[in-house]
Design a protein around this nucleic acid. Structure first.
Lengths: 233, 233
DNA sequence: TTCCGTATAATTGTATACAATCATACCATT
DNA sequence: AATGGTATGATTGTATACAATTATACGGAA
């Protein structure tokens, strides 16, 4: 399914660099390239039938998104995420999504509010059917709507960065159906607070929503998966 | 053990790309290249005596830092900052510097605490002498110490990004000596709260510190300088 | 064996040639 | 004069050759 509309920057998906970028991004998020794995310019270039130049530039973009780390004269490595990183991200997101919900209460447009309501309605349906993929997709979209609605490109950009960062983790911590329902209920409460113009409540709910999401990840074995990594530092 | 030190940006200062990157970064921050100005690969390459390749890669890095925006097949443009952007950044920083101070209360090392005290002591001296350049330098360093002390590379990275972003603005809003003194007093209070282990107080003070800094910028004509830009969006 | 230096291979860094795309100016048609 | 299309130049995109750097293997000396 079309999971990246990410049109925040540009859609240069027709340039070679753009295609390499999207392919590598997908492969990293899907887990094809493991953490700390080295990405070699020629190998990837040959695999995709392009020269090193677009690959190198795609690397810089991936670094921009925090998916790889480039060490000069050495190589490009898939960024490792430790359990502590995930914890920190959710701590930060908790604050910022709260701020975002607060701002959105003032700034949200009618269209955005309608899409939000539709999103929640649809998620209810898919929850009842047990369609986990669609649930995940709608969850992503709900947060994107919220980011856009806050009318702050600085905040939107930071939140999208962090959101994208943790997509990889969801790959590993299986989200359960019960969490899917609970999450959507929280979305609904946030939406209703925004609709009612209660910025304080919206902020507080969005805040809690993130902490709950993190708690759920911990319950589902986050630390078991990333534990060894965390102990390294 | 101690596998990757995350401060690689500074490491490649001996590569051509690194040098181009630093030069352009400096020129943008100093205002040599104005907002929305187009940067051309060949022109910059000739000016620095290098080919287009390192210039192109430096461009990607600058985009990574948010200093320029690249439009495919068109060009690279210096990112514009609006008054609203600055406001949003300080709103975000207020929350995150608060979180940072809270975390630092638990995690700060003895060395970091000592450097922080020395920093404040030195700033007192330079304030009395009216050395504004040194004051600015020490202010930057104080925040960097705080970022490092929170022991969260995610938070540190985000805060450094935002910090760097607003350096361009300080160029334009003259920081007064009175604000310099007041700012350093706030630094001292934050430091003392951290030293006393009072995380709540440290968070609250760091929070307020950012809001005060923003208020000062507004007083010194931020909106007059960036007003027209802000109205564009 | 262990250590160190050197040769060799592998990989990234840079320069340059050429292709593709975009902007501009000019001319023709209406 | 206004419009539209085409030629031309400018600029970015890509491929490739070569240089610089790093990693690896090997051999000799302590």
């Amino acid at each position: 399914m079309a999971n990246y509309d990410l049109k925040n920057e540009v859609n240069d998906k027709y340039s070679l660099r753009g295609r390499v970028f999207q392919k590598l991004r997908e492969d990293i998020l899907s887990g094809k390239y493991k953490e700390h794995e080295e990405l070699k310019e020629v190998a990837i270039g040959e695999e995709l039938g392009v020269s090193r130049t677009p690959v190198r530039e795609a690397f810089r973009q991936l670094e921009l998104e925090g998916l790889i780390q480039i060490v000069p004269n050495k190589g490009a490595y898939v960024t490792g995420i430790t359990a502590k990183d995930v914890k920190d991200i959710y701590m930060i997101r908790s604050l910022l999504e709260g701020l975002c919900a607060r701002l959105a209460t003032e700034k949200i447009t009618k269209e955005q509010m309608e899409e939000m309501e539709e999103n929640i309605y649809l998620a209810d349906f898919h929850a009842s059917k047990g369609h986990m993929d669609q649930m995940a997709e709608l969850d992503n979209r709900f947060h994107d709507i919220l980011y856009e609605a806050c009318d702050s490109k600085m905040l939107e950009h930071t939140l999208k960065d962090y959101h994208q960062y943790v997509l990889r983790v969801r790959q590993k911590t299986l989200s359960t159906n019960t969490r899917g329902r609970a999450s959507n209920d929280e979305h609904r409460q946030i939406m209703e607070a925004i609709k009612a113009g209660d910025a304080d409540k919206a902020e507080q709910l969005a805040n809690k929503h993130m902490l709950n999401a993190y708690d759920n990840m911990v319950k589902n074995g986050l630390n078991e998966i990333y534990g060894e990594e965390a102990s390294k530092e």
